[in-house]
Simulated scan of single mutants.
Amino acid sequence: MPDHPEKGGVLEVTCPCCEARLTVDPVSGAVLGSEKAAHARAGVDLKDAQRVLEQETARIHERYDQIVQTEKGRGAVLDKLFKTHVEKSKDEPAPRPIRDIDLD
């Protein structure tokens, strides 16, 4: 999926795996050019390794807490949705099961 609308008849796409930027001809599908992604650890000195690890650990914990909060909310929403459907279905008669002979 292109990151930007067409620019002069070419598409600029970011690779989802390595985050490299590719310039693609939409007609032929040929890659016209590419730029490697700048990695966060490329310019890090060994002296800064402790700080980088602490930052990554903090980012991981933050993301984990965010996922936990999302899942807690999701469970409550699904529970509420289930209860409303159960209440609606109490008044309706049970549907008659479809038998193989009914399909002929």
Score class of each variant (00 low, 15 high):
K36P: 03
A49M: 14
R59Y: 00
V52Q: 02
H61E: 12
Q66A: 06
K47Q: 14
A58C: 03
L32I: 03
Q55R: 12
I60G: 00
R63C: 05
L32P: 01
A58G: 03
A42M: 10
E54Q: 14
I67R: 04
G43A: 13
R63S: 12
G29V: 03
Q66C: 04
S28D: 01
Q69D: 13
R63P: 00
R51S: 08
E35G: 02
A30R: 11
Q55T: 05
A49K: 15
Q55L: 13
S34R: 04
T70D: 14
T57Y: 11
S34W: 02
K47H: 06
R41T: 14
D65G: 02
V31W: 04
D65N: 14
R41L: 15
Q50C: 03
H39D: 14
V44R: 09
S34E: 08
R51T: 11
R41I: 09
D48G: 03
D48R: 08
E56A: 09
A58S: 12
E54P: 00
E62W: 02
Q66S: 09
I67L: 09
V52H: 00
Q50T: 13
I60N: 02
L46Q: 14
A49N: 03
A37M: 05
A38G: 07
S28P: 06
T70Q: 08
A37F: 06
V52W: 00
A37I: 01
L46C: 04
G43N: 07
A37W: 00
Q66H: 11
A42E: 15
R51M: 11
A38C: 04
E54K: 09
S34D: 02
G33T: 01
G29H: 02
E35F: 10
Q50E: 13
